[in-house]
Simulated assay, not measured.
Amino acid sequence: MNISIITIDGPTASGKGTVARIVAEKLHFHYLDSGALYRLTALSVIRSGINPDDTGQIAEMARNLPCRFEKEHIFLGDEDVTDAIRSETIGNMASKIAAIPAVRQALTDLQTGFRKAPGLVADGRDMGTVIFPEADLKIFLTASVDIRAERRYKQLLEKGIPANIDNLRNDLIERDKRDTQRQTAPLVAAPDAITLDTSTLNIQETVERVLDLFARTIRSRS
């Protein structure tokens, strides 16, 4: 069976998660938030007290994550951790462990297992370059660091989480540096990806662009 795949990669706070989820809903496709898998691993590491330098134990934990996605909710076992994994502490830890090759390998099979009929929309940092290089449509979302910091700031405040925009901006710069310069699966647009700068686009406009690009892709192959 032909299973369509759309990958949406990009840096933190580029809007890729929200866009991917809405696109998946509109197409009635499955949705994979790959970044959440790293955040879930980070949450598990922090809660368990594992030494952050023990890459083997972290990889084993990642390999056996009891996780599932239900619409806008993310579960670790039976616990809804949707908000818990969105803190900056978890995000920074996730960025660090994502640079560990053994952890990325451990999560590869987990991620490819989300490919199910009728289709999949996967967002992350290496969906189009590593996990699903055969994807029908590859999108790379980006935006200026100032715009992304402002988006993350508003997002955290709306959830009642205190934040400092200058600290957020600095964290994004550091995270971008780690993600783009790591040796294993660095953050980069796939050669055949279409780059969309969302600095001046809202979520709905971005979603419409992605849906239009997917429709064109399907028509060109029929």
Results as ranks from 00 to 15, higher is better:
Val130Ala: 05
Ile139Asn: 00
Arg148Thr: 05
Pro162Cys: 03
Asp126Cys: 08
Met127Arg: 05
Ile131Met: 03
Ala163Ile: 08
Pro162Asp: 05
Ile194His: 06
Arg178Tyr: 08
Pro186Tyr: 10
Gly128His: 02
Ala190Leu: 04
Glu174His: 11
Ala149Asp: 10
Gln183Val: 13
Leu157Ile: 11
Thr198Cys: 01
Glu158Val: 04
Gln204Ser: 08
Ile131Ala: 03
Val130Gly: 04
Thr142Ala: 04
Arg151Lys: 09
Thr184Ser: 13
Gln183Phe: 14
Arg169Pro: 13
Ala163Ser: 10
Ala193Asn: 09
Asp123Pro: 05
Ile194Val: 14
Arg182Asn: 02
Leu141Lys: 04
Ala149Cys: 10
Leu168Asn: 00
Asp126Arg: 03
Phe132Lys: 00
Leu137Lys: 04
Ala185Tyr: 06
Leu156Gln: 11
Ile139Gly: 02
Asp123Ala: 03
Gln181Asn: 13
Asp176Lys: 07
Val145Pro: 11
Arg175Val: 11
Asp179Leu: 07
Ala190Ile: 10
Ala135Leu: 10
Leu187Thr: 06
Asp146Cys: 11
Asp171Cys: 09
Asn164Met: 11
Arg169Val: 05
Arg148Trp: 03
Leu172Met: 09
Ile165Val: 15
Thr184Glu: 15
Asp176His: 11
Ile194Trp: 01
Arg182Ser: 08
Thr198Asp: 06
Arg175Lys: 13
Leu196Arg: 02
Thr184Arg: 13
Glu158Leu: 15
Leu168Tyr: 07
Leu141Ile: 04
Val130Trp: 04
Leu141Asp: 04
Asp136Pro: 02
Gly160Ile: 10
Leu187Arg: 02
Ile161Cys: 10
Ser144Trp: 08
Asp192Ile: 05
Thr195Gln: 13
Gly160Cys: 12
Ala149His: 03
Lys177Phe: 13
Ala143Ile: 11
Ala149Trp: 02
Asp176Phe: 11
Leu141Phe: 04
Asn170His: 15
Ala135Cys: 08
Ile165Gly: 04
Phe132Thr: 00
Thr200Gln: 14
Ile147Thr: 15
Pro186Ser: 01
Lys177Asn: 14
Met127Ser: 01
Arg175Asn: 05
Arg169Tyr: 13
Leu201Ile: 00
Val188Lys: 15
Asn167Phe: 12
Ile131His: 00
Pro186Val: 09
Ile165Pro: 01
Ile161Met: 14
Asp171Ala: 14
Phe132Gln: 00
Glu174Trp: 08
Thr184Asp: 14
Val188Asp: 00
Ala190Thr: 09
Ile131Thr: 09
Thr184Asn: 15
Lys154Gln: 15
Thr195Glu: 15
